[in-house]
Design a protein around this nucleic acid. Structure first.
Lengths: 240, 240
DNA sequence: TAAGATTTGTACGTATGTATT
DNA sequence: CAATACATACGTACAAATCTT
């Protein structure tokens, strides 16, 4: 039986991590933007003095972090450094929770979303423009149409929350919320749970949010957002 | 000059991604916990019918996501699926922002932390126990001692915020906050900025938070947290 | 202490698939 | 269509690290 893994090797960095760092540093030093072409594997081999395998393994690791993007037969590009790794990691660890069922993990994600959105909506209420409210209202109208037809509207839901926080000028916020939203949806999908049991109710929650924002009612907007999340939580508990 | 990258290949999944999925599925199916030993590379080669290089590249990608952990000469283990990839990705993309200076990116991260902590502290106020408050107070006392000596105390700061949200029973929250905290610190470190120009002031902010929690003052606790973040933002602006 | 077995790390060669010119 | 450039995949050999005996 193998013993506990040791925590040796604090002195020296592994070669693979070193190559990863060097490639990242290369991107930073050369001021390459997302989409820019990176040196070929052969050039990296030569520049870094390592074999093709080592280069490829490092690039694969960076690809998993969305720091580079590899295109077969074309080349390696600087990636978007999106939150894709967060989505993959959270999805995996939720699905791999064997000790408890996954509803606890989903509740954790939902609580983070809830705190974020209830806090952010107050700031949105102060900065949102009429034009943005019009766009939000258009999305809600489409939600209501889908709801009357009994159809779920995950894409509209996602678009609403993304549009809602666009006025903050904080690019991280919509990406982070979208990541949590995607994990929530993927896990539920993998578990074969239904998408949205009551689309009309969901549409009304969003309508109430826009209405409160339109009248400049900060408290009301936060309250409407809270109601929205209470509803999602109630559904999750029912399915749990 | 190469044109825009195409978005072909939606039909078939790349071999490497397939192997990654298969390894993740293997962990889920066999109900392996973090720390459990995975099949050796040779076994995976055989089971999945691919070469060693392909197995290794897939494992390297999963290692970057902290889904597996590879130990030279020992074996491959199931990883913690921590938020390390988020830290790496956010740090990289902040340092790689060439269009704007990084202060804008740091302000975005700070805003997320701020909204989260100001919302969460209200829930903490309702659930925190006397024993937890005692531990928090002990940390603050050490902060004040360090502050009087003019020393910065990043570890105590981190421990405080981690301890603060332990009572929520939401494991994701402290991990997420720690991730943002680490990115913030790493980027500032890479830019050669000072750690904490006024430790005594920082200690006082934390003292005020505990004091408000002790008296059960929800509004006061949120207010104290807000003051804390206003202070951090003011410092960041001064350095910007 | 030392030798051997197991496992991962690195390197090289070759063939194939894919996109550009 | 042909030629070129590049990434992808496989196989093999050996080095390095770790555990067992």
């Amino acid at each position: 039986m193998p013993g506990q893994p040791r925590n040796s090797r604090t002195s020296e960095e592994s070669r693979n991590s070193r190559i990863q760092r060097q490639v990242m540093q290369l991107i930073i030093d050369r001021r390459l933007r997302a989409g820019a072409l990176l040196p070929t594997e052969a050039e990296l081999m030569e520049d870094l003095g390592v074999s093709r395998n080592s280069v490829r393994e490092a690039l694969k690791a960076l690809q998993a972090l969305d720091i580079v993007e590899i295109r077969h037969g074309y080349g390696t590009y600087v990636g978007e450094a999106s939150l894709t790794p967060l989505i993959d990691g959270l999805t995996f660890r939720t699905l791999a929770r064997h000790d408890h069922d996954d509803s606890a993990a989903l509740a954790e994600i939902l609580q983070v979303r809830e705190v974020l959105e209830e806090g952010l909506i107050r700031r949105v209420a102060a900065t949102v423009t009429e034009a943005e409210l019009d766009r939000l209202e258009a999305v809600v109208s489409r939600m209501e149409a889908a709801g009357r037809a009994g159809r779920a509207f995950p894409d509209l839901d996602r678009a609403f929350h993304e549009l809602l926080y666009a006025s903050l000028g904080n690019d991280l916020v919509p990406q982070l919320l979208a990541a949590f939203w995607t994990v929530f949806r993927r896990v539920n999908g993998a578990r074969g749970r239904p998408d949205d049991p009551s689309p009309e109710l969901t549409a009304r929650w969003h309508r109430d949010i826009v209405t409160a924002l339109r009248t400049g009612d900060v408290e009301g907007a936060q309250q409407a957002m809270a109601v929205h999340f209470r509803g999602i939580e109630a559904r999750a508990r029912r399915l749990g």
